[in-house]
Design a protein around this nucleic acid. Sequence first.
DNA 1: CAGTTATATATCTCTATGGCGATATATTGG
DNA 2: CCAATATATCGCCATAGAGATATATAACTG
Lengths: 100, 100
Amino acid sequence: MDAFEALAEPNRRRILDLLCAGERPAGLLGKTLAISQPGVSKHLRMLREAGLVESRASGQKRLYRLVPGKLAEIDAWLEPYRQFWAGRLDALEAHLEREQ
Amino acid sequence: MDAFEALAEPNRRRILDLLCAGERPAGLLGKTLAISQPGVSKHLRMLREAGLVESRASGQKRLYRLVPGKLAEIDAWLEPYRQFWAGRLDALEAHLEREQ
DNA sequence: CAGTTATATATCTCTATGGCGATATATTGG
DNA sequence: CCAATATATCGCCATAGAGATATATAACTG
């Protein structure tokens, strides 16, 4: 499971949104999002395998936190597209007209 | 199909990468990526439904181009996460320590 | 109009995955 | 050691989607 696939699922994005505010135990995530316990666990596993989160044990609980670098890959992939909504539209369109 | 789901598929990201260089006919995309003709057509349909690309007829061909705004939504979703890899790591970790 | 090119759609198969209940594992408290 | 809590895993089912083949539609060419 790569990062792009992991982000395709809305609940997984919401989990990341919650973790954005800080480290959280698995159970709390499930309660907040109203997902079944096995559901959260499976999503968390995928997020782990995608390298987007990591966990540590703390007593009975398992605390999850974001892994900073992974979303940066997606950010990097987006980089070439930023010119499209950053004012270079006219230049691009002119370029296309010339090509085709 | 929303933008996140659309990006989950590697071939669709490669199609977008190609379109990043300018408007292209469907057939050329398939040839470049070595995908079957119906395959490209289906991917392009999904990209259309996700609002990521649009097409116009030009003779027998159908020219596809990026829709600027749609990827910006994903860019916007990433915004809160940028602080994680932009030097605010120490502050965040301190915050977490205090919380749990 | 017939034939060719370009693209879209239909259909099928296969695999992956999301949601669920049940169960297994681990940690803590008595 | 036993009960309770927290999480992970398993098995099942239903569905979505990716690939492939076949067919349909549309436009250009002679």
